[in-house]
Simulated scan of single mutants.
Amino acid sequence: MSTHTNPASREWQAFWLAIGFLTRIPMLTQIDYSQRLMNQSSLYFPVVGLLLGACYVGAYTLLTLAFSPLISIVLVVILHLWLTGAFHEDGLADSVDALGGGYTLEKRLEIMKDSRIGTYGTAALVMALVLKVALLAEASPVWLGLLAAPMVARLTPLLIMGYLPYVTDPDKSKSKPVADGFSRTRLAIAATFTVFASLVLVLYEPWLLLWGLCATLGVALVWGSYLRSQLGGYTGDTLGASVVFSELVLLLGLTI
């Protein structure tokens, strides 16, 4: 990246790089790509989640004009899979395949790198999608689940990166640049943004903020501890799985 790029321009590029990393949305600015910029982009993961959530709320609002709430939710989930390229769901399937079918660290990492999906991964993916549709159908209000869950859930992988080491082949992982030299300062900024944005969204139901924080920290702690025992750290796929788990736990709170 050019040494003459000013800080504001670097942050703008980092924001668009985060969008390009997590979604199919085209980056509407020229990116002077570097590993450092990729690392900086992690700050904006919750922001990207909020933007995705806004897209889902808009789509749901329009779809309910023509279809039932359940059909609209299914269509929004399909939109989500297209917009994100099933990025996190792919991580879930690969993680469950590896952790369910591998009996050594080397075998688990080998399975995780395999592009094919196995029985464990298929079962986990199907159940996760079915559960997500069911939870959204029962959520009250639905718009809050669609808007807040994608934002808050994308803080979870940053928390895991903050206290676990990165393990996998460094030359073959898409998340390697994000993992290298991960900044805890930027993690704190991302967490602060997420908390304040959540506070605004759930002002009329303060307990939902507490639930969201506990769910995010809980998934990061439980899933992170399991990854430490099974892998000795995290991989890009396991970070994707953490987003899916967090969304499901967060949505569960909206059904209570």
Rank of each mutant, 00 (worst) to 15 (best):
Y44C: 00
F67M: 09
G253T: 05
Q230S: 15
E110I: 02
S173L: 10
Y56S: 04
V222E: 01
S183N: 04
A241W: 02
R116P: 01
L131C: 08
D114K: 09
H4E: 11
D90Q: 01
A124T: 01
M1D: 12
Q40S: 14
V48C: 12
S9T: 11
L62H: 13
T122M: 14
V152Q: 14
S246K: 10
P7K: 13
A179I: 10
M27I: 15
P69T: 11
G233Q: 09
S68I: 00
I25N: 12
W143K: 10
L231A: 04
V133F: 12
L81G: 07
P170Y: 11
Q230D: 09
L70V: 12
Y226D: 03
R116E: 03
D114E: 05
A18H: 06
F45P: 09
L252W: 10
M27R: 15
R108G: 04
F196K: 07
P177L: 07
T84R: 09
L199S: 15
H80I: 08
L70D: 05
G233A: 12
V167S: 15
G91Q: 03
P150V: 11
I31Q: 03
S175H: 07
P206W: 02
F193M: 10
S246P: 00
A190V: 02
G253I: 03
S140I: 08
I189C: 09
V130N: 09
R228T: 04
L217C: 10
L129V: 05
A8Y: 13
N39S: 15
L146F: 05
A215L: 10
A190S: 10
L62G: 15
G49E: 01
L209K: 08
E205G: 07
A220E: 07
R186I: 06
E106W: 06
V47H: 13
L37C: 14
T104W: 02
T194W: 03
M112D: 01
T156A: 01
V195Q: 07
D114I: 01
I111T: 03
P206G: 11
A93S: 00
L155E: 08
M151P: 09
K176F: 14
A137Q: 04
F15D: 12
W207R: 15
V48E: 06
G121Y: 06
L129M: 13
L208H: 02
L51R: 05
I73V: 13
L208Q: 06
I71E: 11
